[in-house]
């Protein structure tokens, strides 16, 4: 099971700059769909890569679904030479995304985020309109299902402006 609270706390305490996207962002906005991993877009500055590496080392990140024993090294060089990583950690599944389809990287997405407090942790969340746009851009049938639900979330929130 993925402990979303623990993962958010680990990243936040280490000062990692990241934006929550994907299913967890959808859930925070009001979606009722299940999701099993935390997707975040991380800032690809050298300093942030170092913070990310140090934050996750104690939780033994490894490539999710890969056979055990591969020579995977969790370090800044690995992140710098890659972009998106689907990881398994001791506290659950974490997708670290340098960029997302239809949205780009951290700097491109940052203006479309809001700061939220979840479990007393302050973090950046991709706003609902942008989340719908990027899900549309991905273009898989399962993403259209998500878009359908998120558009209804948006309609419901407009009808109930006191509930965010």
């Amino acid at each position: 099971m993925t402990d979303f609270k623990a993962l958010l706390r680990i990243l936040s305490d280490a000062g990692v700059e990241f934006i929550v996207v994907g299913g967890v962002a959808a859930a925070v906005h009001g979606s009722a769909r299940a999701t099993f991993d935390l997707d975040v877009v991380y800032r690809r500055t050298p300093e942030n890569l170092e913070r990310l590496v140090l934050a996750l080392i104690p939780y033994h990140p490894y490539l999710r679904g890969a056979p055990p024993g591969l020579p995977f090294r969790w370090d800044a060089t690995t992140i710098r030479r890659g972009l998106n990583f689907t990881l398994k950690t001791d506290v659950g599944d974490l997708d670290l995304l340098g960029e997302i389809t239809g949205g780009g990287g951290y700097e491109a997405l940052a203006p479309s985020t809001t700061l939220i407090r979840a479990f007393d942790i302050e973090c950046r969340l991709l706003n609902l309109d942008r989340l719908i746009e990027v899900k549309r851009a991905v273009g898989r049938p399962k993403d259209f299902e998500v878009v359908a639900e998120l558009e209804i979330v948006r309609e419901q929130r407009r009808q109930r402006p006191t509930q965010s």
């Binding site: 993925t2 402990d3 979303f4 967890v24 859930a27 925070v28 999701t35 099993f36 479990f119």
Partner: peptide, 8 residues
């Protein structure tokens, strides 16, 4: 988020 983790 707690509901999501229970569902998971």
């Amino acid at each position: 988020l707690e509901t999501l983790m229970r569902l998971q």
